[in-house]
């Protein structure tokens, strides 16, 4: 067992509700986890800890720790429990490392998260990590093809469910979880990568504009 404490900065996307990860923390520990919207600002370097976890959203770990010559890495590790928009968080945590991240810190972080019943995928520090980087172009294409009349929304959703075994189609998933959130994630990715596949699709831009006016 690796002991850990939590610094809760409020409005955590990863842990919006009770979870064994929250329940298992103590006052002190080998690992400290900064969670919530203010996690990055609250982060403090502490080499006495085996690992420091910092919750990320669209940010990268380098924005927290700083970067230097591709040799960055310490006991600080980024993490994000994957969820799409307003959908419930999944059991998957993306654990973000840098080139010279301490392997002991990675191992401790993994043990803490897996001990709380979560699954962990490790990745290097790129915007969008694994899942947003992969699924956002797919969602953008689905929205664009809906505009172009490739098929109806229902038929597109049904096709990927029957043909690929996906639990949910792209259109129904985005509508359920908030299309304006897709805009925010893709806009952040587009600013980093600059390729058209990450540019928010027209329907996401419309949803964002309406959300700004308080409309769904």
């Amino acid at each position: 067992m690796v002991s850990y404490s939590i610094v809760d900065t409020g409005d955590s996307r990863s842990f919006p509700e009770d979870h064994p990860f929250l329940a298992g923390s103590g006052a002190e520990g080998e690992v400290v986890a900064y969670i919530g919207a203010g996690a990055i600002s609250a982060w403090q370097e502490d080499l006495s800890r085996t690992a420091i976890l910092v919750e990320l959203h669209t940010e990268t770990l380098g924005e927290v720790t700083g970067e230097s010559r591709g040799e960055e890495g310490s006991n600080t590790i980024g993490f994000s429990r994957f969820r799409v928009g307003d959908g419930a968080p999944s059991d998957l945590v993306e654990l973000v490392r840098q080139p010279h991240t301490d392997p002991a810190a990675l191992e401790a972080a993994r043990m803490v998260l897996e001990g709380a019943g979560l699954q962990v995928s490790e990745c290097f520090d790129f915007a969008g990590r694994i899942l947003d980087r992969l699924i956002r172009p797919y969602y953008n294409e689905a929205l664009a093809k809906l505009d172009e009349g490739l098929a109806t929304a229902d038929d597109m959703d049904l096709t990927v469910k029957l043909g690929l075994g996906y639990p949910e189609g792209p259109i129904e998933l985005l509508e359920r979880t908030g299309l304006h959130h897709h805009h925010d994630v893709t806009q952040a990715l587009f600013e980093v990568y600059g390729t058209r596949h990450y540019a928010p699709a027209r329907r996401a831009r419309v949803a964002k504009k309406r959300a700004k006016r308080g409309l769904s």
Partner: peptide, 12 residues
């Protein structure tokens, strides 16, 4: 790691 993320994160 990619396969685990896709299956656990998206339910594929």
């Amino acid at each position: 790691d990619i396969d685990r993320a896709i299956k656990a994160g998206l339910g594929y």
